[in-house]
Simulated scan of single mutants.
Amino acid sequence: MSARKQNVSLEVIASLCKRRGFIFQGSEIYGGINGFWDYGPLGCELKRNIRDSWWKAMVLSRDDVVGLDAAIIMHPRTWEASGHLSGFVDPMVDCRSCKKRFKADQLCEEQGKKLIPEYESDGKTIKSYMLPEGIKCPACGSTALTEPRAFNLMFKTFVGPVEDESAVAYLRPETAQGIFCQYPNILAISRLSIPFGIAQIGKAFRNEINPRNYTFRSREFEQMELEFFIKPGTDKEWHDYWIKARMEWYTSIGLPSESLNKHVYSKDELAHYASACVDILYEFPFGLQELEGIAARGDFDLRMHQTYSGKSMEYFDPQTKEKY
């Protein structure tokens, strides 16, 4: 006989986590800072257990995956190549009445509507967005909202003693690019041949417009990342394999299968470089949300880094004598 599922509010969970020493508000004695959380005695042990379980499943128990611990701050050209400098943006709006700020697409979605894109002359590239009629501020109910404007989510900093454009750097918004940049080094020093993967666990930072839902939408968080490199033409086979493997891992650590789901991207939803993408979803107290994404990205990332760095990212297949 299975236990009946109980709906527990996020407030109750947050209160329990604080009392038991799992999670505290960051800098709480100074009033806290939105989007940042500290993990207490039990919280850091829980995190370590999850990390260890993931690392064992993805690296230690396999002979086709190796680990990496890349730097948080990378050469700024990295983010040009990856598209983050120009494309890692969210549209935001401000309420002219109560002065609160919101993520525009989220605001529309919550009110059953969608942002209206405006395209460049090529008819494909989105240059800006407009709000549909009738969108209201969820805080005060006003319809006096600014037009959406782009907001880059990367945290900007400076390297060295002089704060000018030549010293600009960014806290990484994802862990994947460190893997792509070190791909040729790992290929050179290891005895791995395709297919193989590179995994890492580390901090990432996103200057979210409106952090919410407790730790789910934070400005500093930890990612567990695997990039798996395959022979062209085997995308579907490996994509299906990893979807199955990842779903099995979540149930193995205790997540009930009935609370897990998948979102299969339609062609219209896919990034221009992806041939397929599936999100693994979990039923949180605030609804069904993404736990992880599994994307067939093709050679886009390696190709872009090859173009921007001038360094070869090609793999020579000793069996077929091909380069790809």
Score class of each variant (00 low, 15 high):
residue 41 P to V: 08
residue 46 L to G: 02
residue 148 P to T: 10
residue 130 M to Y: 13
residue 278 V to T: 15
residue 234 T to Y: 03
residue 80 E to P: 02
residue 90 D to T: 07
residue 266 S to Q: 04
residue 75 H to P: 05
residue 277 C to K: 13
residue 13 I to K: 12
residue 297 R to C: 09
residue 70 A to Q: 04
residue 191 R to C: 12
residue 88 F to N: 05
residue 65 V to D: 04
residue 188 A to E: 15
residue 77 R to C: 04
residue 73 I to R: 07
residue 29 I to Q: 05
residue 315 Y to L: 14
residue 206 R to N: 06
residue 203 K to H: 08
residue 235 D to H: 11
residue 192 L to F: 12
residue 127 K to G: 11
residue 178 G to C: 10
residue 56 K to W: 09
residue 221 F to R: 02
residue 36 F to K: 04
residue 111 Q to Y: 08
residue 289 Q to N: 14
residue 44 C to M: 06
residue 94 D to A: 13
residue 172 R to K: 08
residue 176 A to S: 14
residue 91 P to V: 10
residue 70 A to F: 04
residue 86 S to Y: 03
residue 4 R to W: 03
residue 321 K to R: 11
residue 174 E to L: 13
residue 28 E to C: 04
residue 252 S to A: 12
residue 86 S to K: 09
residue 91 P to D: 10
residue 218 S to N: 10
residue 276 A to W: 00
residue 13 I to Q: 10
residue 148 P to C: 13
residue 15 S to E: 14
residue 57 A to E: 07
residue 23 I to V: 15
residue 288 L to W: 09
residue 170 Y to L: 06
residue 294 I to V: 08
residue 236 K to T: 09
residue 162 V to C: 02
residue 289 Q to H: 09
residue 84 H to D: 01
residue 209 I to Y: 02
residue 257 S to M: 00
residue 3 A to N: 14
residue 9 S to I: 09
residue 11 E to H: 07
residue 48 R to H: 13
residue 133 E to L: 07
residue 304 M to N: 12
residue 266 S to V: 01
residue 267 K to L: 08
residue 261 N to R: 08
residue 96 R to V: 09
residue 7 N to D: 14
residue 299 D to G: 01
residue 119 Y to I: 02
residue 233 G to R: 00
residue 175 T to D: 00
residue 145 L to N: 10
residue 32 G to Q: 08
residue 321 K to M: 06
residue 119 Y to S: 02
residue 96 R to D: 13
residue 314 E to F: 11
residue 210 N to C: 12
residue 321 K to Q: 07
residue 119 Y to N: 07
residue 283 E to C: 05
residue 210 N to K: 15
residue 16 L to I: 06
residue 7 N to T: 07
